[in-house]
């Protein structure tokens, strides 16, 4: 039982990171129907920037609690990532707004390669370690272990997701975003500047990615210029699982994917009588994803756009 609870906790922590990144994918998709393949790299930039700031502060011997130093790093990461997100949209996606559907996909891949290599030039090819400045407390819940960092990740993710939902549902900007997603032309007629809304969407998504990047590097203790690819892929899968374009769906998809991966790795051996092991963890995750899409072709919470596409 304690093993099962532990696996669920593992899955939820992993899943909440996926969910934060998936929100970025889903927000952009909801408005532009564009898969922003470079989103994973924005997460990586966030992790790298925050680590640079944190290491510099620690190196300078600044006498502040670890949490405050990390907050400074986070702030820097958010600002830089907002800039990166805005620039990407401006240079690589906006000129292709009316181009054939797959053209922005290629520029997205180009941007992803460029960001990776710029990061490699700036931060080098080595893995960068996260200084051990955060509290390392461990707690027992129902026989399972949970650390302070894990609790922080869960709490911050939930708060951010709630905040974003409020923003989209209640604020003026949120209304403008929803209107633009429905129809950019008509939103324009109603006095919404579609370009500004799209830019703001990218900026918001990138800020979330920055937070996710900092959480990932703090949790695993390292960052590398290549880390964005896999994270982006997982988050994209999560967004599709939940129904891409749907905010609640992205959160649900992320959490589900995390739990599925965790349970898959933990129990696949027992389920198949030892024939398949944890090496089939991703097969298991993709298999469930495919199964879900077979019965709900637009994801768990996605609207049925079938006849429109």
């Amino acid at each position: 039982m304690d093993i099962f609870v532990q696996q669920i906790i593992n899955g939820l922590v992993l899943g909440s990171v996926y969910a934060l990144v998936a929100l970025g994918y889903t927000m952009v998709y909801g408005i532009l129907e564009l898969i922003n393949f470079a989103h994973g790299e924005v997460t990586m930039i966030g992790a790298m920037v925050s680590l640079t700031v944190i290491s510099a502060l620690v190196g300078a011997g600044v006498d502040l609690p670890g949490v405050v130093i990390v907050l400074f790093g986070l702030l820097a990461a958010i600002l830089v990532c907002m800039g990166v997100g805005f620039t990407i949209e401006r240079l690589a996606y906006r000129p292709l707004r009316n181009a054939p559907r797959l053209a922005p996909l290629i520029t997205a891949i180009g941007v992803s390669i460029v960001l990776q290599n710029i990061a490699m030039l700036i931060w080098g090819r080595q893995y960068i370690s996260f200084p051990p400045i955060l509290p390392q407390g461990r707690h027992q819940i129902l026989g399972a272990m949970i650390t302070d960092v894990q609790i922080a990740i869960l709490v911050i993710s939930v708060l951010l997701m709630l905040g974003l939902t409020l923003l989209v549902k209640k604020s003026r900007l949120g209304r403008a975003m929803r209107a633009t997603a429905q129809s950019p032309q008509i939103a324009g007629l109603m006095g919404v500047n579609a370009n500004t809304v799209i830019s703001l969407t990218f900026i918001l998504g990138s800020a979330l990615a920055a937070v996710a990047g900092v959480m990932v590097s703090a949790y695993y203790g390292l960052a590398h210029y290549y880390m964005g690819f896999l994270l982006g892929l997982k988050a994209f899968s999560a967004a599709v699982l939940g129904g891409i374009g749907n905010l609640t769906g992205a959160v649900l998809g992320g959490l589900l994917l995390g739990v599925i991966e965790s349970l898959g790795a933990g129990y696949i051996g027992d389920l198949t009588g030892g024939v398949l092991g944890s090496n089939y963890q991703d097969v298991f995750a993709f298999f469930i994803l495919i199964l879900v899409l077979l019965f709900r072709p637009s994801g768990l919470l996605g609207e049925r756009v079938g006849e429109r596409a």
Partner: peptide, 21 residues
């Protein structure tokens, strides 16, 4: 080796921007 893939990425973006189809 530092520049090769970077230029490749830029080339992908530029080619697509100039000839979207």
């Amino acid at each position: 080796s530092d520049l090769r893939m970077l230029l490749f990425g830029f080339a992908l973006i530029l080619m697509m921007l100039f000839r979207p189809a």
